[in-house]
Each structure stands twice: as structure tokens, then as C-alpha cells.
């Protein structure tokens, strides 16, 4: 099983969904289901963390003489 902290939100969410389905099926041996439950906990926390990182930051590229990017400055278009 891959390291949860390095997973993308989509992968983590997808695995969580699959895992809950397995748990709900009831076909998994008890010990396995405890492992699934604990992994599900880690996946859930990871997803929550990703969702918590919801901050808007807008910057505009500054261009040099030839139109190449030289940097970026925060900007507000409102």
C-alpha cells in the first residue's frame, strides 16, 4: 500500500471509496477489516487536509523585453 501522505486527493478519495465498499460488503475477515478501517482513517485525514488547503492566491506574471516571464506579483482584479 502506498504512503498516504504522498497520495493525490483524487487517489486518496478513490481508495477510501473502494475501501468503504469492501468494509460494507462484510466479506472481509475481521483482522483485514480492522486494517481497512485504520487505513480509511488515514485516507480520510489526508483528504481533509487537502480540502483544508483552500487558499486563494492570485499573481500576475511580469514579462521581460522579449515577452519572457521574469517573475510574478500578487494582483487583485476586483
Amino acid at each position: 500500500m502506498s504512503n498516504v501522505s504522498k497520495m493525490s486527493f483524487e487517489d486518496a478519495m478513490g481508495e477510501l471509496e473502494k475501501l468503504v465498499g469492501q468494509l460494507e460488503s462484510g466479506n472481509v475477515p475481521l483482522e483485514e477489516s480492522i486494517k481497512l478501517y485504520e487505513r480509511g482513517d488515514a485516507l480520510k485525514k489526508h483528504c481533509e487536509k487537502k480540502l483544508a488547503e483552500a487558499e486563494e492566491k492570485v499573481a500576475q506574471i511580469t514579462k521581460g523585453a522579449d515577452g519572457e516571464a521574469t517573475g510574478a506579483t500578487p494582483v487583485n482584479y476586483d
Binding site: M13, L23, E24, G26, C47, A54
Partner: peptide
């Protein structure tokens, strides 16, 4: 949509806990 994802995640979480509880109850 972040709110939808939060809702989906919360639903999954509820299902996870319930499924485990059922599993334990059944056992």
C-alpha cells in the same frame, strides 16, 4: 466544488464507521 467534496468525504466517513460497527456487531 470543495463543499461537495467535504460532503462526499463526510458521507464516506459515516459509511466507514457504520460498516465497521456493523462488522463488529455481526462478529
Amino acid at each position: 466544488v470543495r463543499a461537495e467534496l467535504l460532503a462526499t468525504l463526510a458521507a464516506l466517513e459515516a459509511r466507514r464507521v457504520a460498516a465497521m460497527a456493523r462488522r463488529l456487531e455481526a462478529g
